[in-house]
């Protein structure tokens, strides 16, 4: 699979990642090389093979539905780029 500039633009949008125009061709070439490596997988017939999502055959652990963490909002918000009255600030979304 060889990716074009427009493919990279589309993927970068899905990933919410700004890629400079001047870098698009180089990124497309790099990603295409990586995909060539990845496509070595196609030599194996995997019909009927159960996909393995996780190394240990474990099910998700449940815990009692009890409060286990304390409220640390103020502490956590000290490292935020912008907050006001306990809220995280972002550019206006709704006009």
């Amino acid at each position: 699979m060889s990716l074009q500039r427009s493919d990279v633009e589309n993927i970068a949008h899905l990933a919410r990642l700004a890629v400079n125009d001047v870098e698009l061709d180089a990124v497309a070439a790099d990603l295409s090389t990586i995909l060539q490596l990845v496509e070595q997988m196609n030599v194996v017939d995997t019909t009927g093979v159960v996909p393995m999502a996780h190394p240990l055959q474990m099910s998700q652990r449940l815990r009692p539905d009890e409060v286990s963490e304390t409220d640390q909002r103020d502490r956590f918000q000290t490292i935020a780029p912008a907050t006001e009255k306990g809220l995280y600030l972002v550019p206006k979304v709704i006009e």
Binding site: D7, A12, V19, L31, I34
Partner: peptide, 9 residues
């Protein structure tokens, strides 16, 4: 960035 893009794809 490369890995995020490959993964997203």
């Amino acid at each position: 960035k490369r890995r995020i893009l490959i993964g997203t794809y």
